[in-house]
């Protein structure tokens, strides 16, 4: 029963990792952009929510009404004004430029907010829990986060496979040059893609900031967790990313059950093991 509990808690933990990963997976899938600043955008979303909640008295969930459009706009503008210029020059330019953005965000937050920890307060829901038979307690909040992750991925699947924009995203991902010859404005589409990716990044940032403290330097580890979920799941597969997040969460829970200090390490080790055994992840789709 203890292991069932670990499995459940780990799977739920995977929900937030899947949310971390969606934006990264999207920008890689559509424009082959590996966004090193992704984790910092998650943290930045938390800070935007912090400012909004303090300035308006809104609770963190409601603040999403402001945080999401702000991050969408930031994503759109960054891709249009900056990142589009990096996409034709090989591996280094996008990597370097997003590295630069990462450092700018981290140090900008450090200068603006100091190195202190922050948290978003959502009240009773944070600690509420459901009692399942067999003495297993499931937190309402992790359950909610998991549900949001599932809903987010389902809506992205809908976007990709049931709408014209999604069709264009997939076409551009297959062959950007031909898509342009068919009348698609790749640069605009890429900007839209990063904008949409940022919507999920914003949700991830706020949900994560409610349960966990964050500081200006909290971004890189989120990037790594997101990256691990994407690779474990297999590039280009959104449901795979959810599974990847769950595998990561379960590995961490198992590690934490053995010794609390082993939590993060166990996740990394599971990632490296999968990398060696199945280099293309569990459900590969996109060819690099």
């Amino acid at each position: 029963m203890q292991w069932l509990n670990i499995l459940i808690q780990g799977s739920l933990l995977g929900g937030i990792y899947a949310l971390f990963a969606i934006g990264l997976s999207m920008s890689f899938g559509i424009m082959r952009l590996v966004n090193i600043a992704h984790g910092d955008f998650i943290v930045l979303s938390g800070y935007v929510a912090l400012v909004v909640t303090q300035a308006t008295g809104l609770d963190p969930f409601s603040s999403l009404a402001i945080v999401v459009p702000v991050m969408f706009a930031l994503g759109y503008v960054l891709q249009r004004g900056l990142l589009n210029q990096t996409l034709s020059g090989g591996l280094l330019p996008p990597l370097l430029v997003t590295f630069g953005i990462s450092i700018i965000i981290q140090n900008g937050l450090l200068q603006g907010f100091g190195a202190y920890d922050h948290r978003l307060q959502e009240g009773a829901i944070e600690t509420a829990s459901l009692h399942l038979p067999g003495g297993i307690d499931v937190g309402v909040y992790p359950l909610l986060v998991f549900a949001v992750a599932v809903f987010a991925i389902a809506s992205l699947q809908f976007l990709f496979y049931r709408t014209g924009v999604g069709r264009a995203f997939r076409a551009v991902s297959d062959d950007a040059n031909t898509a342009e010859l068919m009348g698609i404005d790749n640069r605009k589409l890429y900007a839209l893609a990063l904008g949409i990716a940022m919507i999920f990044t914003a949700i991830a940032g706020v949900l994560f900031g409610i349960r966990t403290i964050f500081d200006p330097a909290a971004g890189p580890i989120r990037l790594i967790l997101a990256f691990e979920a994407v690779i474990i799941g297999g590039l280009g597969s959104m449901w795979g990313t959810l599974i990847g997040g769950m595998v990561l969460g379960i590995a961490q829970s198992v590690g934490a059950a053995l010794d609390p200090t082993w939590q993060i390490l166990a996740g990394h080790l599971a990632f490296l093991a999968i990398l060696i055994l199945r280099p293309n992840g569990l459900f590969p789709r996109t060819r690099d």
Binding site: R167, A168, A171, D174, D175, T178, A179, M182, G183, I184
Partner: peptide
Amino acid sequence: IAMVPEGRRLFSSLSVEENLLLGTHS
């Protein structure tokens, strides 16, 4: 001005109909 590119260049992850519909983006 539309182009039928050399080697067809259909989008591999799109169905036949989705490939056709892509032409409507203009």
